[in-house]
């Protein structure tokens, strides 16, 4: 079939223009993934060198109850983080999205400002807030000198606080995007047809901003499952998540093939989540 774009731009020129992009993808996405997949079927010798054979042993080990439990825990933490991010982020996104236009950009900027500081430094800042002699307990003792305060550092709570803090902007931004697109006349029409504020929210606002929630969930849930820096810093590695386990296999246990298998399964999970949410998003986006 001869199509119009072929005539306008010769095929080789199109490919030439795409070359940097393709090279980037091959070098940094396709090749590492391929290496990961190949390694995941290999074995390692006593000193940790990769032995090229074909073995399903690594995958069998991934489905060992220990790791499944860690998987489940990771998904649980990420899920909780996502839910908290939706609950905390939605009102923020809604207020910014429905604010007057000249205010929207200023409010969004405020959301971005913290990101200009290194992520690790911001996480350390949370440690100084949450640690036993930290800011939070200091404030509590200021109000109630006899209170014992909280011992939050290195607990699951601290990990979730850290995760929510890190990923909240990624939830707010896509929801903001769909709130901003929401036609105010639709809200008025719903009111006009007898819907009180709650009904308007549940039958008009939520369904129409669902694509934003789906996109935000994708941006928060998937990376949160694999996060290891926050669990290390705030959880003191006492509650290892799947990200920590993978990191350990590569850097500490030197079992690259097993780490690769964990990574591959994890990637499968990503892909599945992505696919489900994309389908959901596509169905909701359809009428717009």
């Amino acid at each position: 079939m001869k199509s119009a774009p072929d005539r306008r731009t010769p095929r080789w020129r199109a490919w030439l223009l795409l070359t940097p992009m393709i090279a980037w993808l091959v070098l940094f996405v396709v090749a590492p993934t391929a290496i990961l997949l190949v390694y995941s079927f290999c074995e390692r010798d006593e000193v940790g060198r990769v032995v090229f054979t074909f073995s399903l042993e690594n995958y069998r080990r991934v489905f060992d109850p220990i790791y499944l439990r860690i998987f489940a825990r990771s998904v649980g933490y990420a899920g909780l983080t996502t839910v908290i991010c939706i609950l905390a982020g939605y009102p923020v996104a809604y207020c910014i999205g429905r604010a007057r236009e000249e205010w929207r950009h200023r409010l969004l900027l405020l959301l971005m400002v913290p990101c200009w500081t290194s992520f690790l430094i911001r996480t350390y800042a949370w440690i100084t807030i949450l640690k036993e002699e930290g800011l939070l307990n200091g404030l509590i003792r200021l109000v109630a000198p006899t209170a014992t305060g909280f011992d939050l550092m290195y607990t699951p709570t601290a990990v979730v606080i850290g995760l929510v803090y890190a990923y909240l902007p990624f939830m707010i931004l896509p929801i903001y995007g769909s709130v901003e697109k929401l036609d105010g006349a639709l809200i008025e029409a719903a009111h006009d047809l007898g819907a009180g504020p709650l009904r308007v929210f549940s039958s008009v606002i939520i369904p129409l901003t669902l694509p934003g929630i789906a996109a935000g969930t994708l941006l928060v849930f998937v990376p949160a499952v694999g996060m290891f820096a926050i669990t290390d810093l705030m959880g003191g590695a006492r509650v290892p998540l799947i990200g920590n386990v993978i990191q350990n296999q590569f850097l500490v246990a030197r079992d690259w093939p097993f780490g690769a298998a964990l990574g591959a399964v994890f990637m499968g999970l990503f892909a599945l989540t992505y696919w489900i949410l994309l389908r959901l998003g596509a169905r909701e986006e359809d009428p717009a």
Partner: peptide
């Protein structure tokens, strides 16, 4: 004026 039909 814009009809404001619910697209979903």
């Amino acid at each position: 004026q814009s009809y404001a039909l619910f697209p979903h």
